[in-house]
Design a protein around this nucleic acid. Structure first.
Lengths: 343, 343
DNA sequence: CTGAGTTTCGAAAGGTTTTCGCTAAGGCTA
DNA sequence: TAGCCTTAGCGAAAACCTTTCGAAACTCAG
C-alpha cells in the first residue's frame, strides 16, 4: 500500500488507511456509488477533504485545456448573451473550454445536481459560473463538497456569504441614474425594478433611494414596482404608474429590457419620450443604443464581468488566495436621448 | 493478457497484440503521449479504429448524457443567441449537454483542430454543430476521419456536398421580400446582402433576382452590395446607395442587423422610413420588432433551426440514415411598419 | 426464532497508466 | 574511424483505480 503517488499527492490507499476502510470503499465514495453507508461516506469525505485528494483525472488534467461550466437561465436576453460572449472570448484567448447548461426550466429527465457535480469532478472541470440563475444553498453545498470552485454573476437570490460573486457597482449606478434625473429637475421619479429579492436589484433601488433622500425628497412607495427583468414588466409598470393620481415625470428602469417595454407602451399611448416622460435604463446593452429614442442607461461592463468571472474562477481553481469574495466593476451613466427636463 | 473486457469490448491488450506492440504503448497512443513514433502511432490508431476500442470512460459513459459541441464565431448577434437558445432548450429537454467554442478569432495558444477532434473522441462527444462560422475542408476532414458527426447552420462558406446542413428557405424568403416590395409599387429595389460567398446570402439574392425578373425588371448591379451581416454594413450601404444618381426607393437587407444600420443612418440623414424609403429585413429577431419603425422582415425559425440541427446531429450519431443532407425550415414574411408604397 | 431479502464492505481480479531503464540511432569530438 | 554522449522509442514492472462478487451484518415478515 503506497500512501502517496509519485508526485506526492495522496492516493486512495492513503485515504483508506486514514479512515480505516478499504481502498475500494474510498473509490466508491469518490465515485458516488450507492453501496456505502452515510456514516462511512461522511468519514471518507472528511478525510478526502483533509488530505486534499485529487482524482487522477484532476491530476492528469494538467496540460489539457481546463473546462468550465456556465449555467444560465437561458440566452434570451441581450444581457446573458453579452456576458457569455465575454466569458467565451476570454476563454478562447487563454485556451479554456466552456460547457453550457440551462438551469431555469430544470427538466425532469435531466441529471440531478449530485450527478452534475459528480460529472464535473470526473471530467476535470475547473469550476462553474452561475449567471443570473436561481440556485439553492444545497446546490452550492454539493459543489463545495467536491471542491469545485463556484462564481456567481448577479444572482437572482442572495448567495451565501462565502460564495464568490462578480457584479457591477449597482448602488452607485442606481444613485447616478437618480441624480441625473434629479439634476434635470425631476421630483417624482419612479423605479421599475427587477425581482425584489435579487441583490443587484436591491442595490440599484437603494442607490436610487439614497439619491432621493440626499435631495430631500420623500419616497413615495407607490412609485416603486418590482418584477422581472423583462419587456412585459415595463409595459405593465408604465400602465400602473399612469393610473396613479399623480404619475411620475421620470422612470428609472432596472434594466434596458424593462425600459424598452416602457418605451413601447409609451409610444402606443402617444406619450412622448423624453418630452413628457424621462426614462433611464440599466445594463447598457445594444438595445439601449438602438431604440428610438436611444436610451439613457447605466452601462454595466457586461463583457468584462464575464471575463472577470472566468478569471476569478480559474484563480480559485489554482488555489490562489482571493482578495475578496466580491468583485464589483464600475458602471457608467451614458446619457442619450431619453432624458430631458420635465415639462 | 485479456483480450476483451468483461462486457466483451476490446481492451488495450487486444489492440497491443493486434499491432504487435506492448500494452503501455497503446495506452500512450490513446492518451496522446509524445514518446511514440509517428509510424507506431498510425498503426495503433488504425487498430483502435478497426477494433472499435472505447476507453473505460467511454464504456462507462453509456447512459450518461451525451455531449455535443457547438462552434460559433461569437455570440455577438441576436441571430446566434437565438439559435443557441434553440439548441440549449432542446438539449435540456432531452438530457444532452452542450459545450461551446468560439472559432472565429482562432487564438494562437488554442488547441489545433487535430487536438480538438481528438478530444471530442476521447470524451465521447456525440458531434459538433457549426453555426455561421467559417471552416475549411480540412477541418471537416479531421472530424470525418474520427467519425464525428457534423452539422452546419448557415455557414459563411459553402460546405462540401456531403456535409449535413440546416437552414431556412432563403430563396423563398428573398423572393417573398422582393415580391412584397414590388407589390407595393417599388421598381428600384436594392439588395444589401451578407458575405458574397455565403450560401444563405446567395439564395436570398437569387430569390430577390427571381422576383425582379418575373416582374420584368432589369437588375441594376449598382443596387447590389455584399458585406458582413453587421450594422456597419447597413450604414455604409445606405450611404453608397444614396450617392447613386438614381437611388432606390426600397432596400431589401440581408439581415436585421443590416436593416437596423440602414435605419440608423436614415434617421441621421432625416430620411423617413417608410415614407421616403421602404425597408425589409431578414431573420425576424427581436431587433426587427423593437426598432422604430418596426421592421418588415423575413422571419427565420431560428429557435427551430437550432433544435433541428441538434436532432439531426443526434440522429447521425445514432447511425440512423438521414433522409436528406439538407434540412430547410420555412421562412415567413412578417409585414410591419417599415414598408409602404413609394412616394 | 427462522429464513429470505437487503445493505455494507473488502478481497481479489481486472484494466489502465506511469515510471524507469534498456536499446538503438544519430551526432559530436578527436 | 573510433569513442562518447544524447535522445527517441519502446516495454517490463510496478503503481493505481475500478469492478465484481461473496461474506457478514442487519432487517423484517411469518
Amino acid at each position: 500500500m503506497t500512501l502517496t503517488s509519485s508526485d506526492g499527492k495522496p492516493t486512495l490507499a492513503a485515504i483508506a488507511r486514514l479512515t480505516g476502510v478499504s481502498t475500494p470503499t474510498v473509490s466508491k465514495v469518490v465515485n458516488g456509488r450507492q453501496d456505502v453507508s452515510a456514516d462511512t461516506r461522511a468519514k471518507v469525505l472528511a478525510a478526502l477533504e483533509e488530505a486534499g485528494y485529487q482524482s487522477p483525472g484532476q491530476r492528469r488534467s494538467t496540460g489539457r485545456p481546463p473546462v468550465v461550466e456556465v449555467a444560465f437561465d437561458g440566452i434570451t436576453s441581450n444581457y446573458s448573451a453579452t456576458v457569455l460572449d465575454g466569458i467565451l472570448t476570454h476563454a478562447a484567448s487563454i485556451g479554456v473550454e466552456v460547457m453550457l447548461s440551462v438551469t431555469g426550466s430544470e427538466h425532469p429527465g435531466g441529471p440531478s445536481l449530485g450527478q452534475r457535480s459528480q460529472r464535473l469532478v470526473d471530467e476535470g472541470r475547473a469550476g462553474i459560473i452561475f449567471v443570473t440563475s436561481a440556485f439553492t444553498d444545497s446546490h452550492l453545498a454539493a459543489f463545495r463538497r467536491r471542491r469545485i470552485p463556484v462564481v456567481v454573476i448577479d444572482p437572482l437570490n442572495p448567495p451565501p456569504k462565502d460564495v464568490v460573486s462578480v457584479g457591477a457597482t449597482n448602488w452607485a449606478g442606481g444613485r447616478a441614474a437618480a441624480e441625473h434625473l434629479l439634476g434635470l429637475g425631476h421630483r417624482r421619479i419612479a423605479y421599475l425594478g427587477g425581482p425584489e429579492a435579487a441583490d443587484c436589484n436591491q442595490a440599484r433601488l437603494h442607490g436610487y433611494l439614497s439619491a432621493l433622500m440626499s435631495a430631500g425628497i420623500e419616497v413615495d412607495p407607490e412609485l416603486i414596482w418590482h418584477g422581472r427583468f423583462r419587456v412585459e414588466h415595463g409595459i405593465e409598470g408604465l400602465t400602473r404608474l399612469l393610473a396613479l393620481s399623480k404619475p411620475p415625470t421620470a422612470i428609472f428602469a432596472g434594466s434596458d429590457s424593462i425600459a424598452v417595454g416602457v418605451l413601447r407602451e409609451a409610444r402606443r399611448r402617444g406619450l412622448h419620450v423624453p418630452e413628457e416622460l424621462s426614462l433611464v435604463g440599466f445594463d447598457g446593452t445594444a438595445q439601449a443604443e438602438d431604440s428610438v429614442p436611444s436610451l439613457t442607461s447605466v452601462t454595466q461592463p457586461l463583457h468584462d464581468m464575464g471575463r472577470s468571472a472566468l478569471r476569478t474562477l480559474l484563480r480559485q481553481a489554482r488555489g490562489e488566495q482571493l482578495d475578496s469574495h466580491r468583485v464589483e466593476l464600475a458602471t457608467q451613466l451614458v446619457v442619450r436621448e431619453s432624458t430631458a427636463p420635465p415639462a
